[in-house]
Amino acid sequence: MAKVMFKRPAALTDKQFHYCPGCTHGIIHRLVAEVIDEMGIRDHTVGVCPVGCSVFAYDYFNMDMFQAAHGRAPAVATGIKRTLPDRMVFTYQGDGDLASIGTAEIVHAAARGEKITTVFVNNAVYGMTGGQMAPTTLPGQKTTTTPKGREKEAAGLPVKISEMLSTLDGAVYVARVSVHDPKHITQAKKAIRKAFEVQQAGLGFSLVEVLSTCPTNWGLSPKESLKWLADNMLPYYPLGVYKEPAEVK
């Protein structure tokens, strides 16, 4: 008997990702799609993609999609959810989009307990625009706008979104995960599933922060990037469930 151990999820279209070789955006897209398939919700799920590397996510997710202005995805998702409360609505946003230009939108969507799910991809750098400093760039990390490394005096310190949002009563599920090896990928998928379940149960706002790589702008090979993430990002951005409602524990 042949058993399919792994195949492309139906919630992804057949379009080829435009991401650079080894960029873990593709893994995260796939995890979201697998969760949607496994929950059987593709027919009534609406996604909102951001500005940044994942701007074309509307071509990859096989469902109704919105492309939002930079940082505004949580507001757009709010508009969708308030017209169609029975739909599952998610945003997929990078660190520049969510943690810089879109901080107001994400904070207030969370504070309102908006029943949406946010997948927040943190790779500590701006990808699409050419490797500039992100709000999540680590202290000392070299980027095209911090050529000597991010200095506290000039450029401040990183924003820790999961920690910050978990202080809000409306945010009921907040977790930080990583995709730098298969074990963590499995954990990441569980967290994404839980976030969607929290939305389905109508409990409030849910967010999963996913630590991700950017080989191109980190100036490393894909393999080295996985190690850089583990060595540098994990200590600064501790993984774990920051908040979890009793109903889904």
Binding site: A69, A75, I80
Partner: peptide, 12 residues
């Protein structure tokens, strides 16, 4: 945010 909520609602 208002106008982007409008974008979401109009889009549905």
């Amino acid at each position: 945010s208002s106008i982007n909520m409008v974008y979401g609602a109009a889009g549905t």
